[in-house]
Nucleic acid binder design. Structure first.
Lengths: 114, 114
DNA sequence: CAGACCGGTTTGCGTCGCAAACCTATTGTA
DNA sequence: TACAATAGGTTTGCGACGCAAACCGGTCTG
């Protein structure tokens, strides 16, 4: 009884829902542009911009601005470090959620009483 | 292609690691006192106090102060609402993490569309 | 040339998470 | 009895964060 209980300390850079959304998308498509991320995530431009900036600062993604025709195109790509951080995050959170996956009023489970 | 992609919008009250830790513990033991939570989570007293206060305000846990001998004992217990929120959170995050569970690390992918 | 739009970035602000400081009651201990 | 330390929490102060509005340089249209 009273196990050590695994510390819940996810990478907060990844844990933030907005950034997690970005990372999930990038892990699926590997290379997306601003507008694509914008519509997929549903966030505002400012929001998206600042979050991508933070992810880039952490080297989790790379941002590449190319010139296409008359205008620019900004593409975002997951780095190896980002993929690694994401994998770590997944493992960590999976472990945490598994502590829950047989109790706590699941849809197919009788809820706990008081 | 370009599926709607499930919105990543976890209950932020639950999503915060410190509170998630508290909820996970309470879902496992149902009824824990302050000191127990303190040592299991490893957080400071102030921190624990404010987070439990927020969880109580949301009716996710209930706080009961009893008098034991000369001093008081504060016990924390998950409410039905808390268990429900936790189950929802688990399902939500499980879904999100599943988007990841076969990739995130391999540099071999289809390019973007738009 | 004016204005609308596109693709982003910067600014401002309310909220949050954190630990230090504080508080009240109890327990040594001289 | 006094007085210091400890236990069990709560409140305070502050830095960091997430958010959307405002802004900005370039294009395209009329």
């Amino acid at each position: 009884m009273s196990d050590p209980l695994p510390r819940i300390e996810p990478d907060r850079l990844v844990h933030e829902p907005a950034r997690l959304a970005i990372l999930v998308i990038l892990s699926a498509v590997e290379e997306a542009d601003f507008l694509f991320l914008l519509e997929q995530t549903g966030m505002t431009k400012g929001n998206l911009s600042s979050h991508t900036a933070r992810l880039e600062a952490a080297r989790y993604i790379e941002i590449e601005k190319t010139i296409v025709g008359k205008t620019t195109r900004t593409v975002y790509r997951l780095t190896d470090a980002g993929a690694h951080a994401l994998a770590l995050y997944r493992d960590h959170m999976t472990g945490v959620l598994e502590l829950l996956t047989s109790r706590a009023g699941s849809p197919s489970n009788p809820p706990t009483e008081r």
